[in-house]
Write a protein that binds this DNA or RNA. Structure first.
Length: 466
RNA sequence: GGCGGCAUAGCCAAGUGGCAAGGCAGAGGACUGCAACUCCUUUAUCACCGGUUCGAAUCCGGUUGCCGCCUCCA
């Protein structure tokens, strides 16, 4: 069974077949780095990181490219407001992006190209489009001749005429046609600029992705991904540019993630109702946030609220508990062989289910449901009077392996306790033996205040961090 | 106006023809010195109306409500 991907281009799930055996060339539209990212920006980062991890789990090499838009109108505006230069701002927020997204367990891309580092390629790309008649220069700007590209609208499933009727016609535009879009923009006074055959200026937004995808991945890539709102016009324009230029298909599979809503309203920087990832990870376990995001199918919208986060926290805790319980029980486990094989077969079956769910368009919601079933199964096994080390290991390893595929870190207690706390726990155990429960409870309360939660099991007392 | 999405238990959320997954919260019980963890039990006329079918949450037609894109946006 192969991996199925819902392709925006065809509006259906398709079996994934790579261009090159065993390799996935994947381009994800990255952020414009003029501010900290909000959690809506974090969703594609997390979702497509999970896609990447799953491909890798299934044995593919993934060439993962995520670009940074480090020059555009918003950056220029931010620079003016803050009294800084564009490159300074870009550098700062690229670092912030990597830090925030890293907290969510997102791996670094193989390539993180920046617009300003690919200016020669971008200019050459535009020049070639002009040579082919797909673009024209007008007063220092360069525009793409949209109607000349016959397949325009194939991704968003709109005809050029329908788009035309809905489009705004700006007064004083230099465009031949309202549907044409900017490839190169003439610099205004004081704006950051690059030399070009059309005078000093900077690239339009869409051209960077076409150029950098080609440079790092080739004329045709396997997967192009981004937020739903990029479908039109951004991705549609990329297709027009790239296919006009390369004269071949640009991307075989297009993936788009749904929005995050706040109070059922779209969150966006322009609406001002956003939650910055940077702030959120100070208040909540970022791993739990990732778990929350993956608990919904990536194409569906997610509503965001404190109570939903609380619910996710408790759910994630359940999976972590099962893992810790299995590991803890192992210390006192005996090796028994009677029904070992049945349990190991059960464990293999659960793993197959996880893979089956992920194969179906990365259905992380169902994959997480399987994680809960593994936790339940492990907990049931742990109820037995006697357990087998191999089975306990198999449960713990499976939980670690599959949470890892989702980019979730299940380990919570790498740090060892200091001696004082260790001594307190021993002291309490003695108190319990002496049936001095008042003292025992006192110690437990004290440690709880210090963030250490104690649990008494039939195999002895164990602790975890709150 | 064009294109598209969504409506499933108190909440979240899977499920595209065959007795409605899973989680959170609640209630009751077991275990426990008490807790915690865990286990067991427990809650759905799948927005509405009509149709196709032996059989529909799922397919078709219609209705209502909410949302997105068509303009910078993940």
């Amino acid at each position: 069974m192969s991996i199925q991907i819902y392709n925006t281009l065809t509006r259906q799930k398709e079996a994934f077949t790579p261009i090159e055996e065993g390799k996935v060339k994947m381009y994800v539209c990255g952020p414009t780095v003029y501010n900290y990212i909000h959690i809506g920006n974090a969703r594609p980062a997390i979702v497509f990181d999970t896609v990447r991890r799953y491909f890798e789990y299934r044995g593919y090499e993934v060439v993962y490219v995520l670009n940074f838009t480090d020059v555009d109108d918003k950056l220029i505006k931010a620079a003016n407001e803050l009294g800084e230069e564009v490159p300074q701002i870009a550098d700062r927020f690229i670092e912030a992006y990597k830090e925030d997204v890293g907290a969510f367990g997102v791996k670094e891309a193989v390539y993180h190209p920046r617009v300003t580092e690919n200016m020669d390629e971008i200019i050459a790309f535009i020049k070639s489009l002009i040579d082919k008649g797909y673009a024209y220069e007008e007063g220092g700007d360069v525009y793409f001749r949209t109607r000349k590209f016959n397949n325009y609208g194939k991704l968003s499933h709109q005809s050029v005429d329908e788009l035309q009727s809905g489009s705004r016609i700006e007064v004083g535009e230099k465009k031949e046609d309202p549907l044409d879009f900017t490839l190169w923009k003439e610099a205004k006074d004081g704006e950051i600029r690059w030399e070009s055959p059309w005078g000093e200026g900077r690239p339009g937004w869409h051209i960077e992705c076409s150029t950098m995808a080609k440079k790092y991945l080739g004329d045709t890539i396997d997967i192009h991904a981004g937020g739903q709102d990029l479908t039109f016009p951004h991705h549609e324009n990329e297709i027009a540019q790239s296919e006009a230029h390369n004269e071949t298909d640009f991307a075989r599979y297009w993936m788009h993630n749904g929005y995050i809503n706040i109070e059922n309203e779209k969150m966006s920087k322009s609406l001002g109702n956003f939650v910055l990832a940077h702030d959120l990870i100070k208040q909540h376990d970022p791993q739990m946030i990732r778990f929350f995001m993956l608990s919904v199918q990536y194409r569906h919208p997610i509503n965001f609220s404190a109570s939903l986060l609380e619910s996710a926290k408790n759910g994630f805790e359940r999976i972590r508990n099962a893992y810790e319980n299995a590991k803890h029980r192992k210390d006192t486990s005996m090796n028994l062989t009677q029904d070992k094989d049945e349990w190991l077969e059960e464990i293999r079956g659960l793993k197959r289910r996880f893979i089956k769910e992920m194969d179906d368009d990365f259905n992380t919601a169902n994959a997480i449901a399987v994680l809960f079933d593994i936790a339940k199964s492990a907990n049931l096994y742990l109820q037995k009077d006697q357990t087998d080390e191999e089975v306990l290991d198999a449960y713990a390893e499976l939980l670690k392996e599959l949470t890892g595929v989702l980019g979730l870190e299940i380990e919570t207690t790498e740090e060892l306790l200091d001696e004082e706390i260790e001594a307190k726990i021993k002291e309490r155990e003695q108190a319990r033996k002496d049936r001095n429960f008042q003292k025992a409870d006192q110690i437990r309360d004290d440690l709880k205040d210090r963030g250490i939660v104690l649990e008494d099991t039939s195999q002895g007392t164990r602790w975890k961090r709150a």
